[in-house]
Each structure stands twice: as C-alpha cells, then as structure tokens.
Design a protein around this nucleic acid. Structure first.
Length: 288
DNA sequence: TTCTTTGTTCCGGA
DNA sequence: GTCCGGAACAAAGA
C-alpha cells in the first residue's frame, strides 16, 4: 500500500518527467473516486503549466501556474502510469497483488503537451484528486491537521515527547495518528515497532527517552531505506505490456503471522493481532 | 456469501 | 472540552 516512501518515490519519478509540461487534454472515465471529481477539473487545468511537484505526508501536490494545485491521495491502490509516444508504459508506483484487466481501472487520463499521457489508475477507488488553491494550502482540510514530517529534523525527541504528553493510547495507535507524525501507515508502523523491540500494545505512558529515541531513529531509517529501494526498482522498470511483478517490498514482521522472528538471537514467533481493526504483527519474544 | 485491505469519519463512553 | 477505541464506509477480488 502506498505509504510515505511509496508516495515519495512516485513524486520523484513524476518530477523528472512532467515538470514544465502543460495539460493538453483531460479525460475522466470514472468520476467517483473517494470524492466525486469536480467537473471543473478539466477546464481548470487544461493548458496550465506544471511548475513543481511536492509531497506532504501521503499527499502529492502538483503545483500549476495561476495558483492552482492538484491534491492527490493514492488511497490503497492508486498509481500513476506514464505512457510515452510509442505507447510504452512506465509505472511510477508499486505493484499491488491485483492483476486482472488493469486497464478498466484507468480513471483519469491527463494528456500532456509532449504527446505523453499520465494515467491515474486505482482498483479500489479509495484515492482522490482535488483542485485547491495554492495560496492557502495550510487551510486545506486534509493538510491542516497533519503533524510533522517524519523525515524532517522537526520530528525529534522534543517534539515527540511534547506530542505524547498525557496521552493514553498504545504505541501503535500513537504512531498511526497523523496529527502526531504524518505519513506512517499500518505496514511501516509494524516494522518500526519491531525494529525498536517495542510491543505495539504498550501504553505510550510507559516508554522512556531511550524508547522514544529508538522509535524516532528507526522511523527515519526504515523510511529512507524504502525510498532508496523503491527508487531503484522504479528506475529499472519499463515495458510495453504493463506486465507486473516489479517490486515487492520485503517486510520483517508485516504479514509474517506464525513465522520466526528474523532478528539475531531471537527466533521468537510473530503473532497477528488486531489493534483498532488493523492487522498488527509483532514478535512475542523480543518486542517488550 | 463473507472476508480482507486502508484512511477517514462518526459516535458513545470515559 | 478532549480523548479514546470501535464501527462504518468506500470497491473489488479471492
């Protein structure tokens, strides 16, 4: 699922290829994504130039001239294809275990002025595309509630301690809370807690400075590593038939119910439990 | 038919 | 007023 690293990789790969181009034409095949796509989208962005692309949390922001920003969330299965003049497809996102007749999920097609197409494809339709004003991004209802970026130096021990002060949630729910740290989803939170040797059910009140430091450092480390791996896998991917199977992230705990912990000298058993209706995987031996 | 997946929102209770 | 966790919701595939 696209969490922060995947979104970052998508942003980077788009950045190289569509900056300074304009939208020549837009076709909307399905207007019901998470939110109904505003019909004015076509009129608003046609002939507008793409100035910059950035990421905030799991959102992609494509900034156009005339103070227009396209705000995109990939939901669970959103991805972009770039199709060049020769109809060669370049995927800019990750491969999900969904294969049948991918083309019917091409919901929005952006025609660019260099004869390439940018296709938004989303099997589950939980993503969205919105037009917002570049002027007051900080007032946008999606963006204004977000906590700090985990990879920024702003996400540090002082901020983390302040954020969790007097809170009662367990560790997992704290890290899932977008108001505290923005961009982590279920998979990476599982991985971070495993690397930190901390039990996801543990109350946030019971962690010490050392635990907090571990969480912060492993958060940064794991996200950075995934961005690098994702980046290299995307770079190597390009084919015409869109045949999938490029890249499957390898996780240390996520999805490994009843398997052995891979940590040195541990070999405990990984168990799957539910926390707030989310699958939670942790080693019953080394995560205390 | 039922279960699964995620982020977000809503709601009752503390 | 605020916090918390559980449930519901979206769509489609297994």
């Amino acid at each position: 699922m696209p969490e922060l690293p995947e979104v970052e990789v998508v942003k980077k790969s788009l950045k190289n290829k569509i900056i300074n181009l304009s939208f020549r034409k837009v076709i909307i095949n399905t207007n019901k994504l998470r939110y109904t796509i505003n019909k004015n989208l076509i009129k608003t962005i046609t002939n507008k130039k793409i100035l910059t692309i950035s990421r905030r949390s799991k959102y992609i922001l494509i900034n156009l001239d005339k103070n227009i920003t396209i705000l995109i969330h990939l939901g669970m299965t959103g991805k972009f294809y770039l199709v060049d003049k020769k109809n060669r497809k370049k995927k800019t996102s990750f491969y999900y275990k969904i294969s049948t007749n991918d083309r019917k999920h091409n919901h929005v097609i952006f025609y660019l002025n260099n004869q390439t197409k940018l296709i938004y494809n989303d099997v589950r339709k939980f993503g969205f595309i919105k037009i917002i004003s570049t002027n007051n991004l900080e007032k946008n209802k999606h963006l204004r509630v977000l906590g700090r970026e985990p990879l920024s130096s702003d996400f540090n021990l002082k901020y983390f301690k302040k954020s969790i002060f007097n809170r009662k949630k367990n560790l997992k729910n704290i890290l899932m809370d977008q108001k505290i740290v923005a961009g982590l989803g279920n998979i990476y939170v599982n991985e971070i807690l495993h690397m930190s040797s901390l039990n996801p059910f543990k109350s946030i009140r019971k962690i010490n400075d050392n635990d907090a430091k571990k969480i912060i450092n492993y958060t940064k480390k794991i996200l950075k590593k995934s961005i690098i791996e994702g980046g290299s896998s995307i770079k190597n991917f390009s084919n015409s038939d869109g045949k999938d199977g490029i890249f499957q992230q390898q996780f240390k705990v996520y999805g490994r119910n009843n398997k052995k912990c891979t940590k040195n000298k541990c070999a405990g058993i990984i168990k799957k439990r539910n926390i707030s209706n989310r699958s939670t995987f942790y080693c019953i031996r080394c995560q205390k």
